[in-house]
Design a protein around this nucleic acid. Structure first.
Lengths: 102, 102
DNA sequence: TCTATGGTTCGAGAAATGTCGAAGTAAAAA
DNA sequence: TTTTTACTTCGACATTTCTCGAACCATAGA
């Protein structure tokens, strides 16, 4: 694995290494799975992600950006709201990494 | 996923979120795979892990402990040397996490 | 027994990170 | 057009993290 790859991967894990950010990501994964089950495309508002977390809006905003910059989630603006979704390629890459028999 | 689980998982990712630590872990994974191919049990010395990394021995020692505390690797003392190996259960858990269709 | 090797422990300092409140922006509702 | 909603940006501060050198410990070899 090349040096820049390690750098990028470390960033991904660093993004997941904060409890609140991880919770956001897990929430999105859960949402994703539910939506998939219902045959719908996933979407989720920032305000919704905040639910249950003990941090303010500015912090969530910051965390969402970190997750997006790490490539773990996609975001899309829709009017006032920010739609977040799991980035499927990131999931594939992570699956591949740990799929290796160790 | 329960609160303590999230906490533990965040710790795992935090451990992988540092470039040098991630490199150590990847080295071990690679070693593991090679050894498996040869039908041998894996083992690896700390000094060996240091190879290529631009950090001193105290830092590597610290990083190895972090990885071990996070449950990602197992360590075992053998005379002067510290034998490190990937913790298979951790790999299984991570595989399961990302195996979910998102 | 002396010395070398492999690793650990202990501050310490620099840098990165997490969270906040206040203020700002842009879209939507009234 | 005013107000509200949904989010962002901006310092700022406290905490955590990373790495280091110096000193230390235990085992192995000479």
């Amino acid at each position: 694995m090349s040096q820049p790859d390690v750098k990028r991967l470390a960033r991904v894990f660093r993004a997941l290494g904060n409890e609140n950010r991880l919770q956001i990501f897990l929430n999105l994964m859960e949402e994703s799975r539910l939506d998939l089950a219902k045959g719908r495309v996933h979407d989720c508002f920032l305000a919704k992600l905040l639910g249950g977390l003990e941090v303010g809006a500015p912090t969530v905003s910051h965390h969402v950006k970190e997750l997006a910059d790490a490539g773990l989630i996609d975001t899309e603006r829709e009017g006032k709201q920010l739609i977040c979704s799991i980035n499927p390629e990131a999931m594939t890459a992570l699956r591949a990494l740990f799929a290796v028999e160790a």
